[in-house]
């Protein structure tokens, strides 16, 4: 499996990553090698095998009563935000 420069551009777009022109061919080479390495997996006979998503069996999602347990700490949490105003996170204009 060989990934082209164009493939990398597409993946980077899906992942919302800016990749420079100079980096594209470098990633194309290393990602091709990595994906090629995955071909080993095709040697395993997996017919009828259940996919495993989680290492612990019989674990059920814990539920709790629907009660308020946290206090409002918006201002504290927004202390780490790059740009806020009036308690809102600011981003570039989305709708003209």
């Amino acid at each position: 499996m060989t990934l082209t420069r164009r493939d990398v551009e597409g993946i980077a777009m899906l992942a919302r990553l800016e990749i420079s022109e100079a980096e594209l061919p470098v990633y194309a080479i290393s990602l091709s090698r990595i994906v090629g390495f995955f071909d080993q997996l095709s040697a395993a006979a997996t017919e009828g095998v259940e996919p495993m998503a989680h290492p612990l069996e019989n674990q059920v999602q814990a539920l709790r009563d629907d009660q308020i347990t946290e206090s409002d700490q918006r201002d504290r949490y927004q202390g780490n935000a790059p740009l806020v105003a009036a308690g809102l996170y600011l981003v570039p204009k989305v709708i003209e």
């Binding site: 980077a12 800016e18 990602l31 994906v35």
Partner: peptide, 18 residues
């Protein structure tokens, strides 16, 4: 994201996305 992440992290994000 392009500036914030280093090369290996970007490679893994792209591998995972793929």
């Amino acid at each position: 994201r392009g500036e914030g992440f280093g090369a290996e992290v970007k490679r893994r994000i792209m591998t995972g996305t793929y």
